[in-house]
Design a binder for these strands. Structure first.
Lengths: 325, 325
DNA sequence: CTCTAGAATCTAAGCGCTTAGAATGTAAGC
DNA sequence: GCTTACATTCTAAGCGCTTAGATTCTAGAG
């Protein structure tokens, strides 16, 4: 791999100055067609690939967004060769949002740089990524407030999470409370459940909001929130949890929904093909991704614009796992 | 968003030279603890975020890999707000390999820059990405040979696809032929099928290899490869196709495997929770991703090392959709 | 043929960082 | 006090690109 050719090499080969080479690529209309052809020919011949680092340094923008993400699964300890790990790697909420972000960014000419939210030192990773992009999406937010502010002072940042109400930061959220309320009410009013258990730890702001709604509705209805024996309904924190649970129950010979109701939250595509199909609350995951990119673009277009907070509605989606058909 | 502080600002604030600031971050042991603290304090106070562009330009490396990917689905035409699109966005092969690549890269301190293989002008996108990373993974290969060579001359490139036998390029493949052969033999020998249809267009080298194996085994067994009426088995090009088909058939009231056998290829986690579970050929998707990163790292460590071609075995995985239980 | 406006091209100054190699400080040995 | 050997810090030269502003061409007008 020889030293890569630079604008200088191309300029020399084409018999022009480096400025002309640069213009040939950035503003073709400003150079005479004949010259342009000479330059393009030389570039092709030499195998010229412009250095984005140099361009980024010169113009101060990189035309790329960063995405720090944390997928909620314990990082695999050993090597990755166990394909059977299967479900653990199941595409989750975060992957679907990522997909939306990628597509939206691409459509606007931005590339996406993905960083590891599970890294030992997220803050360092985040600063590192922040140094090479024009905007950053946190999925969900998990940086120290200190680092967060530091980064937010340099580039636009948007958190996709509940509870990021800092007036200086952009955020995207869904209506966790409303969604969970609708879901549990359905169980109470239609299926007349007499007990229910919440599955999964309420370890993030989003999960906490869901749990709070779950608890409140049950309280209102005078239904015990937990029981030692099997409850009539397992209300899971996420679809991923619900799908895992469905598998566990099946293995134990417990039927869903005949013996127990199971519900999820998120609206993963997987819930459509599971058996039974999953009653859940759908989030507009791609829309969240698209919106995140939009906020970033807005902020870039007008750096002085105030931070935005958008909350998206969710939709109760009745399928088979609650007993409806 | 004020102008971001640079090494110069930090140096001035800390009363040292820019070299000392740089060393404080890159080789802390080389600066006196007291000085180091002064610099770190100044950096924190100013909200210093180093510019990766500048660093990349100075050192000639960016500590990131590019990934151009093409997910085989028609790019959504309209806006992204139809969550119902569901299955179309289903995590496919490419997403699982991507996952492996991301994890492996992260573990080695590299970030991943993802680019759009579905872009109108993939070649331009690819060159653009190539200009800002230390290595590139093509998933699967879909660049013009011209661009491919041009990029490969500048940075290590690895294609994850069948038929990338160019001696100058690294490649990762699976044994499509063997896998499909095992699968179809199982259908012939165990289930005694009398007819079978291949589902999905053989539009890439991988799909062509699968189709060829399918055809060969049937021919050997003297079984017609297609029929006007419904065949006894639908052998799908991929799991994604098979899962779609499963849904279609269910909607039409056709039972699987009682009325017709359906098989996939890839080993997506979704095949574990579909009903019936999917008989398929599992690819070690994460391993492919990890291997791709490995080849890149090897090449970076020793740029003169010859290109490597690795082919991974696949594994016939019998589940319910073929009639086994 | 000269003049002038506009097109085409070029010169040169950065962008923010790394890192040889030079300069300076410091402490131990004589 | 003077060397010597390191430890510490600094100076300055890039890395490859963009882009004002200067310079040179070109062609139509007079």
């Amino acid at each position: 791999m020889a030293r890569s050719p630079t604008v200088y090499d191309v300029a020399q080969a084409a018999g022009v100055s480096i400025a002309t080479v640069s213009f040939t690529f950035s503003r073709p209309s400003r150079v005479k067609p004949a010259t342009r052809d000479k330059v393009l020919a030389a570039a092709r011949r030499l195998g010229y690939v412009p250095s984005a680092s140099a361009r980024g340094l010169a113009v101060g923008r990189t035309k790329s967004f960063g995405l720090i993400f944390w997928d909620g699964s314990t990082p695999p300890a050993g090597p990755f060769d166990d394909v059977n790990a299967g479900l653990r790697h199941f595409p989750r909420w975060v992957h679907e949002v990522q997909y939306g972000i990628e597509r939206a960014a691409w459509r606007n000419g931005y590339a996406i740089m993905v960083g590891d939210g599970d890294a030992i030192d997220v803050d360092t990773t985040a600063v590192d990524i922040a140094g090479r992009v024009d905007g950053l999406v946190l999925l969900p937010r998990m940086l120290s407030p200190d680092t967060l502010m530091r980064v937010a002072e340099r580039i636009p940042v948007v958190s996709v999470t509940e509870g990021a109400d800092d007036p200086h930061l952009n955020s995207i959220t869904v209506d966790n409370r409303q969604g969970m309320t609708d879901l549990v009410r359905h169980l109470v009013e239609v299926h007349r459940i007499g007990s229910a258990a919440f599955v999964g730890a309420a370890e993030t702001a989003d999960y906490r909001a869901r749990f709070a709604a779950f608890r409140d509705v049950l309280e209102q209805a005078g239904i015990p929130a937990a029981s030692d024996s099997m409850p009539e309904a397992y209300v899971c924190r996420t679809d991923a949890d619900a799908l895992d649970l469905l598998n566990d129950l099946r293995a134990k010979g417990i039927r869903v929904p005949e013996d127990v109701i199971v519900t999820g939250f998120d609206g993963l595509a997987a819930g459509l093909i599971s058996r039974p199909t999953l009653t859940t609350v759908r989030q507009p995951m791609h829309v969240l991704g698209v919106a995140a990119v939009e906020l970033l673009l807005n902020r870039i277009a007008d750096p002085e614009s105030p931070a935005e907070h958008r909350r998206f509605p969710v939709e109760l989606t009745i399928r088979h796992s609650c007993g409806c058909s």
